[in-house]
Computed example of a mutant assay.
Amino acid sequence: MSRTKDASDHRPKTPPDHVRAVPVRRPGRWIAVLVIGVLIAQFLHLVLTNQNLHWDVVGQVFTYRTVVRGLSFTLLLTVLAMMIGIVGGVLLAVMRLSNNPVLSGVSWVYVWVFRGTPVLVQLFFWNFLGAIIPDIGLGIPFGTTFVEWSYNDLVGLFTAATLCLGLNEAAYFSEIVRAGTLSVDEGQSEAAASLGMTRSQTLRRIVLPQAMRVIIPPTGNQTISMLKTTALVSAISLEELTRAALDIGNRTLYVIPALIAASLWYLAFTSILSIGQYYIERHFARGSNRTLPLTPIQRARARLGVLSKGKGIT
């Protein structure tokens, strides 16, 4: 008892002074900011003062009729190829996850072939396939042909490019869907089976809606990549955005300004796709996050202090 009393007598009668937190110094960050700032300043100086860039020519090429028409072909190719890729990828993923060894094996071989060969090689293959198969017909297998068409008449340049890009995308998208499907806990499928749901119903109503959180981000990346991959179709003389800009540059000898104009179009539409991807990801994150991430507009308003404190953001 005496020790306890003695110890209590020596306790400080006044509270300790307020502890002042000193932030950790990070000189490396300031050095990096300084270096980046100098590089950005040099880049802006080059862009604004270099007369060889010919920004007036860039503006003319940006809205030139053939460039706008090439842009329309690029966007149409991207949409059609992604539609083929998404539909084909889902079918291939379902086949790959099937218990049937034939379906699973066919899906694996398809993915192996299309992922293992360059897109440019596949593009040339589809373009020159008429040399191997000059005619395409419908009829009895190994028997009578009722209707027949010439391959070159049936598959033009645009069709060949669409088939090449779409079927190649299906191989990649099937792996995206498969990864998203496998990310869903197996207990979900078991619970659906106990309720009497079929495998297809379980896939459509239980598995895929939950797998979309994993599927959407790489799908957005693949769409942006497809927009840029369409530039390869210029190798088979299809005039899309890049080919149209290069033709103008070769005729006028303003190659760099023409390429800058094409790049600005690509940047504009990749930015639009990135914004769309962000909002789609935010939509499918509603079931997993209690609080949704702020949109860019909401984040800007919050930083400016417009949003009132305690107001919920939906």
Rank of each mutant, 00 (worst) to 15 (best):
M1H: 11
D6A: 09
P12T: 04
T14V: 13
P15H: 08
D17R: 12
H18T: 12
R25D: 08
R25C: 01
V35C: 09
G37R: 14
L46V: 05
T49L: 03
N50I: 04
L53W: 07
H54G: 04
V57T: 15
Q60Y: 06
V61C: 12
V68D: 05
G70H: 09
L71T: 14
F73W: 11
L76R: 01
A81L: 01
I84W: 01
G85M: 01
P101M: 08
S104V: 01
V106I: 15
S107Q: 04
V113K: 08
V113H: 08
V119T: 04
Q122L: 08
L129I: 14
G130Y: 10
A131W: 11
I132D: 09
G139R: 12
F142C: 06
F158G: 11
F158D: 05
F173T: 00
L182Y: 03
L182I: 06
V184G: 11
E190R: 10
A191M: 05
A191Q: 04
A191Y: 04
A193R: 14
G196P: 05
R205P: 00
V207W: 09
L208H: 08
R213F: 05
P217F: 01
P217L: 02
S225L: 00
M226S: 00
T229C: 00
A231H: 00
V233Y: 01
A235M: 03
E240K: 05
L241H: 01
T242Y: 10
R243W: 06
A245M: 11
N250W: 15
R251C: 06
Y254R: 08
V255L: 15
V255K: 07
I260V: 12
A261I: 10
Y266T: 01
L267K: 02
Y278E: 08
I280T: 15
R282S: 12
A285R: 13
N289M: 13
T291H: 14
T291Y: 15
L292N: 07
T295S: 15
Q298S: 13
Q298N: 13
R301D: 08
R303W: 09
V306S: 08
V306Q: 12
G312W: 11
